[in-house]
């Protein structure tokens, strides 16, 4: 009886575990393996690490670190990594700046209003990411609505280039990832004990003082969670730089894509992915740990 129970328990644990091991964890090992191979014209287009030579009956084992060396020697890839980190960090900062007042307002609204406002934040999150990026293409074009508006108000006297610039990429990231920032912020702000603000006021704190000394520190878990939810995926973003960025907008997700699809250099694309993963492991672990603390 007991063994049957334990067997059932084990099955329940093993099913999702094996699925994730097979299709989430092991693929990373494969990427690592192929990053040590050489690109060649073949199917699949990379050299085997282990090869059995049947005529001489010996096994050859060949790895190369050439792809990694190439990544570090060439200025281009380093620039792409740095530029991705910069774009992601600045976008995250602006998402926080725009998201915080919204989250704060929602958390302090009456229940019915709160439900409505929360729905307004969640709604874009459910609608297509790709189509929301696309919506900006029409707005930012040379003869798009933003240029029309700026011309009509006399801020500019001829259309300016907004689409295919770095600015459009920042805008796209802030726009599409904003709900990811607002939701965790809202969750922490909603839990906050408002008596603390009363206490601060009674003790003579001005509103801005109680904001910086009480609200902001209490909202810290939400700020961290929101920033990581925006920052980590934004670093590897492909769609936004591809649709809104210019040809000179350097982002590592786009470099990986081009390396893979245009140059068909699978080993180099894998090395790009491995290095990106190493860069992001820190923030990802940090996020997991702060999740644990919240529990």
């Amino acid at each position: 009886m007991l063994s049957k129970l334990r067997l059932g328990r084990m099955a329940v644990i093993l099913v999702p575990m094996l699925w994730l091991a097979a299709f989430f964890f092991i693929p990373f090992l494969v990427v690592f393996k192929i990053s040590l191979a050489e690109a060649m014209i073949a199917v699949p287009p990379y050299s085997p690490l282990l090869q059995w030579d049947s005529s001489n009956a010996y096994l050859t084992f060949k790895v190369t670190f050439g792809n990694y060396l190439y990544l570090f020697e060439s200025r281009f890839y380093l620039d792409a990594y740095l530029s991705s980190l910069k774009i992601a960090a600045i976008s995250t900062f602006f998402a926080l700046l725009i998201g915080f007042p919204i989250a704060y307002l929602i958390a302090r609204s009456r229940p019915t209003m709160r439900t409505i406002l929360l729905a307004l934040v969640i709604l874009p999150f459910w609608t297509s990411f790709l189509l929301r990026v696309y919506a900006w293409m029409a707005l930012l074009k040379k003869n798009g609505l933003v240029n029309d508006f700026l011309l009509a108000t006399g801020i500019i006297d001829q259309p300016i280039q907004i689409l295919q610039t770095d600015f459009a990429v920042y805008l796209g990231i802030v726009y599409t990832y904003l709900p990811f920032m607002i939701l965790p912020l809202y969750t922490t702000l909603e839990k906050m004990d408002l008596n603390l603000l009363d206490a601060a006021q009674d003790l003579g704190a001005k509103p801005y003082q109680s904001f910086f000394l009480v609200t902001l520190p209490l909202a810290k878990p939400g700020i961290i969670a929101g920033c990581l939810l925006v920052f980590i995926p934004a670093v590897g973003e492909y769609v936004i730089p591809a649709l809104l960025g210019g040809s000179d907008t350097l982002m590592i997700g786009r470099v990986l894509w081009d390396e893979f699809f245009l140059n068909r250099d699978w080993p180099l694309a894998s090395a790009v992915a491995v290095v990106m993963l190493i860069v992001l492991v820190g923030p990802i672990m940090f996020m997991r740990n702060s999740n644990k603390e919240a529990e």
Binding site: V31, L229, I232, P233, V235, G236, Y238, W257, A273
Partner: peptide
Amino acid sequence: PLVMPEVI
């Protein structure tokens, strides 16, 4: 997987 860049 929630935050993993899609290209990876």
